[in-house]
Amino acid sequence: MTALSINNLRKTYRNGFVALKGINMTVEAGDFYALLGPNGAGKSTVISVIASLITKSSGQVSIYGHDLDSERETAKRLIGLVPQEFNFNMWEPVEEILLNQAGYYGIPRKLAYERAETYLKQLNLWDKRQSQARWLSGGMKRRLMIARALVHQPQLLILDEPTAGVDIEIRRSMWKFLREINQQGTTIILTTHYLEEAESLCRNIAIIDHGQIIEQTSMAKLLSQLNTEIFVLNLDQPLEVVPHVPGYTVSLQDGRTLEIEVLREQSMNDLFSQLSQQGISVVSMRNKQNRLEQLFIDLVGRSSGSVSS
């Protein structure tokens, strides 16, 4: 089943700025979907239209087959949104924020209390339930917005940069939580600037730039487009000169650090065997760049080139 279907979505603001130039996008139920793009590309505008926070200029949006124009209230019940900016009453206690949101969805108070307890506990906010939201740390505020978005148990959860400004430990615990609710059947759409996050969590991806979708495919297919990867090798002994490794482009960063460009069809075993034959011992190795990041820069770079030309 299709969780989200967007057809020819356009948005022009009153000042004439064209934010969306005919977006087409489909997200299947149960998917974990990444919507990526540079700043100002139109990601948040797409999300705001889906969430009814911005009025679209034209086009069609449907959620689980319910048209956002003709079946607005049914469609809205199926969406949960974690926005980029904090948008709750800072003076309200944490639990009250969840209870109010549940109330707006028509959830009776008793059930709302149960749901609030469930999600506040899952997101490690239960101890803070009586605190005013303004006293929470940045990471806690982000988790509060996730709990609030889940309180009516939506089938489609949209997260607009949910881990922005959150430390790595909390970010990883949020990833774990999001994977769990996705496995339980919630469709998730995620925008993020941490491409490692998208690569690690999402199965399908759309890249948006200048208000247009420039790529829409599965994460695996996209990553398979990557022809070369650059590896950074830390060496046991320092080198004086750049070693010659036939078939590979090698550069010496400092005495103990080599950068080697490896083509997709080349074998890592072959590389290590050649290095070993030359008496070069490798202590550790890492990718120079996140793989998705490399592709993202290429795609957006190409898109910008075509737009400017």
Partner: peptide
């Protein structure tokens, strides 16, 4: 006005509240 200013009007706008 506070609801608008602090953007928590969005809590209502996203919900199925006429």
């Amino acid at each position: 006005f506070s609801t608008k200013l602090q953007h928590y009007i969005e809590e209502l706008l996203i919900a199925p509240v006429p």
